[in-house]
Design a protein around this nucleic acid. Structure first.
Lengths: 350, 350
DNA sequence: CGTTAGCACTTGGGTTAAGAGAGTGCTAAC
DNA sequence: GTTAGCACTCTCTTAACCCAAGTGCTAACG
């Protein structure tokens, strides 16, 4: 069934109004504040019809109407009027990203902080899988006590494993040799390709096979997302929203938020095609806390994934603001990466 | 004024009972359940007297009595009857510490997890300052793009800085040389001694003075506590305690807990002499959230500090259990460190 | 003089009733 | 199709009330 323009308009008003005030919207307020041409009775008829269509619900017979998850979805897809960010907000984003950030870990933290501050919701993020990054540098550093440290640097970050045990008798020179051989073998390769040379490596190191086994296991472990890559910012922002005056809601929220594993599940989009992903309430995804929504954006620049960032907050979320912020942050991030690339290219030209 | 034995006994009963039930304690329940020899009227007289002494307060005239912070303090110092941990709890501790943990960072996380699970309160910790640790290995790894990575390994952990910029023209061999010189200069020294050789280093590296400046700055930065060393475990445990059915309390709690800086202030004991430190309510320390207590223990073994660990929870905390757990964890930790040391010594003998 | 029984007093919590306010659904008229 | 009018429903607030719990005080007891 095609919805009439007036129905669309009224639905938009209800959603806008409820997002702003957190108070159920009445036919009277709509007729008085927004649609002065028609009477509240007419609005009432439309509201009843919208309710029948599944877009609105009432808590009580006489309590005004509230948008359903379906309404929010429709609102996001068709009704929402995207505005631009204020000058202040834009400045804030650019200032936050202007520093010379060295590695992704710091960048992710900064990005979530920005998102959380600008939207006033709790922000969550999961960094890009290191999987496809190329190894710039890989070394085994002797540390005494029969231990060596494996350090791997890719273009974007520093990966570091726990210590690796080396055999008691292995002299530092052998370790150093091993380190050089590893360098030769792996540098320039992607992390995901580590397993391809596994056989070759194990063959070359007959004597210190055990050490190599550990190195390869470490390399493999980086293809899984790591706990360190899950970031949370501004968990206390929820108290700025009235739905969290109910302890039960706070509890659900905090229980999910306090486990990095659960956060990771939450924002693991599962569908790589869409750039912005909205999960409304636990009906969209059982991992989402009751009465909460999760909006995420997956960024990439120059063909490389930059991770997934988003906010978690009440279903009655200011989707317009959130999506606008996420889009602008994405642009700024893209700009940042492209600039870096340009610098790099310039360096090469010289 | 010396308190009579009976007053002490009654105070102990009140505190025990209130900690267990979270319900204000009445004279009748004391006379019936614990002191069947005397009447509730007598107990009432004693309670009134204890109230006058500042140990008890009443919310309402007819609501039973509740211990004051002063009462908890007295309880901890004189009344509390330390018990042993159950076999199960002891097993849990030893099992958690039995794995071969490589560096302090993992250890700290494990310890807070154990404390939080056994006490049922949120656990916080701050790792030892790296300050006094000796440098085992220090290297500059070239990573391309005019960057090098400074990696420092001490006996207990891996310290890693952001990338360090190297001049455009500096060839990898020079960097490698620089790395060797740095090794010679710093290995075996304490981090805190880095500044002592500052002049010497800068003199030796006339050409690459800038790089050295960055290295030394990095070394100096490790003498400050780092955000990574502040650990939180089980923040959602608070919901297991009835005082946090009030959103306001949850809010105060979460606001403090969500900032690593604030946590660090909270458990920074300030007084190194005492091993176990109890801060009851915001009257003891303005950083403590309202109606909360913080109990911390500073561990050390073999002359080395192992950091400060503790719990944060309602004032009505099970201090006996908490302190028992903290003591036992301390012992287990000490055992762990000593075993490692023995192993090391054994290795040397061979 | 400490202890105790008895009793009046205070207070919070729970229940009930009434009334106001807000909003709707429906009907009949335009 | 729109609208005015009105009865109906439901929540929220207030007030009155009683009950249960616990205390403080007094007077009597050993």
């Amino acid at each position: 069934m095609k919805m009439s323009d007036r129905k669309r308009k009224i639905l938009q008003i209800v959603v806008d109004e409820y997002i702003n005030t957190a108070v159920p919207v009445s036919s009277k307020s709509i007729a008085e504040k927004h649609l002065t041409k028609i009477s509240s009775a007419t609005v009432r008829n439309e509201l009843a019809s919208l309710e029948e269509l599944g877009y609105l619900t009432q808590f009580h017979t006489s309590g005004g109407r509230v948008p359903s998850p379906q309404a929010y979805r429709f609102y996001i897809e068709e009704l929402m009027q995207k505005g631009d960010l204020s000058e202040r907000d834009l400045d804030y984003i650019h200032e936050a990203f202007s520093h010379k950030s060295n590695d992704v870990e710091h960048l992710i933290k900064d990005v979530t902080k920005v998102i959380s501050e600008l939207t006033d919701y709790t922000s969550v993020a999961i960094g890009p899988h290191a999987d496809g990054e190329r190894i710039r540098s890989i070394s085994l550093l002797p540390c005494g006590d029969g231990r060596a440290l494996l350090v791997i640097v890719t273009g974007e970050r520093i990966l570091r494993d726990s210590f690796i045990d080396v055999p008691d008798g292995m002299p530092d020179e052998d370790l150093s040799n091993a380190s050089h051989v590893i360098s030769k073998l792996f540098e320039g390769k992607r992390l995901s390709e580590a397993k391809d040379v596994e056989e070759q490596v194990l063959a070359e190191f007959g004597q210190y096979r055990q050490v190599m086994r550990e190195v390869i296991d470490a390399l493999k472990s980086y293809t899984r997302p790591r706990e360190e890559d899950v970031v949370l910012s501004g968990p206390d922002k929820i108290f700025n929203h009235p739905e969290f005056e109910d302890v039960e809601n706070v509890k659900n929220f905090l229980t999910v938020i306090s486990s990095k594993d659960k956060i990771a599940e939450l924002i693991d989009s599962g569908d790589d095609e869409i750039q912005i992903n909205v999960k409304i309430g636990s009906c969209d995804d059982k991992d989402v806390p009751d009465d909460c929504s999760v909006v995420t954006a997956t960024y990439s620049a120059g063909g490389k994934s930059l991770g997934t960032y988003g906010v978690i907050g009440p279903i009655r979320m200011d989707y317009t603001k959130v999506i606008t912020v996420l889009e602008n942050v994405g642009k700024a991030l893209e700009g940042l990466v492209n600039n870096k690339k340009k610098e790099k290219d310039k360096d090469k030209d010289e």
